[in-house]
């Protein structure tokens, strides 16, 4: 395999007595779309959040473009995440007080983009994702599927080099899910970005170039690694 863009190696992470990751490893190559699959509770979201630098594993390493994420300070990690990663969380996690377009503008404003330009760009992404109609709605006024479209727009608006998406189509029907995947895929194929995708939907997993199946906190077909 090509030198990976991001490499998670032998990750361990326990929440109290629950061992969510027990030596899980996964790599994603430049331009590659990787699917993380496996039963509920197998550690998919936890692995994705560790790869994205949101959670810190208790053992093992996450390396992005040769840099150890866990060696970075909290501030540096946050900055890296903002600049280079796009993140769609499993339950949307939009800011409830903001409208859809304001939610999508947030990552641009954090990077000190011009307000008007940020708004134009955000509206463009909402339109591509078929969510222009809810641009002025607040998350509480949206359907689950609309919120997922907005969350995807927010993840793509900064032109990230690596997109993390946890069940990005979970609340969408087949054809709507296909539209969202189509936008995601055509965007990353254009920009050369990579994707790490968690899904229960085999059809969505089939958009990925490769799959890693998790079971009980380890990648199937690889032995558990002791911490």
């Amino acid at each position: 395999m090509m030198e990976p863009l991001l490499r998670a190696h032998a990750l361990h992470l326990a929440f109290g007595r629950t061992e969510a990751l027990r030596g899980a490893s996964a790599e994603v190559a430049p331009g590659e779309v990787l699917a993380l699959t496996g039963p509920s509770g197998s550690g998919k979201s936890t692995l994705l959040l560790c790869m994205a630098g949101v959670l810190r594993p208790q053992a093992g390493s996450v390396t992005y473009e040769g840099r150890r994420l866990d060696d970075l300070s909290e501030d540096d990690r946050t900055r890296l995440r903002r600049r280079e990663f796009g993140l769609v969380l499993q339950f949307g996690q939009l800011v409830p007080e903001l409208s859809a377009v304001q939610n999508v503008m947030v990552p641009l404003l954090l990077e000190r983009h011009d307000r008007q330009a940020a708004r134009t760009s955000a509206l463009g992404w909402l339109d591509r994702l078929g969510a222009a109609d809810v641009a002025d709605a607040q998350p509480g006024e949206m359907s689950g599927g609309e919120a997922q479209r907005v969350a995807m727009a927010r993840a793509l608006v900064t032109g990230p080099g690596l997109v993390f998406a946890d069940e990005p189509t979970g609340a969408l029907d087949t054809v709507s899910g296909e539209q969202v995947m189509e936008v995601l895929l055509s965007t990353v194929r254009e920009t050369g970005a990579s994707v790490v995708l968690v899904t229960h939907d085999n059809r969505v997993a089939a958009y990925a170039d490769r799959e890693v199946v998790l079971r009980d906190g380890v990648a199937e077909g690889r032995p558990a690694v002791l911490p």
């Binding site: 189509e182 895929l185 085999n202 059809r203 997993a205 089939a206 958009y207 990925a208 799959e211 199946v213 199937e220 077909g221």
Partner: peptide, 20 residues
Amino acid sequence: LGAQRALHLDRMRGLVAEQR
């Protein structure tokens, strides 16, 4: 079951690409 899943998903990948 794992080997069969890999083959099935491969086929699914081909069908989804065809559909796109």
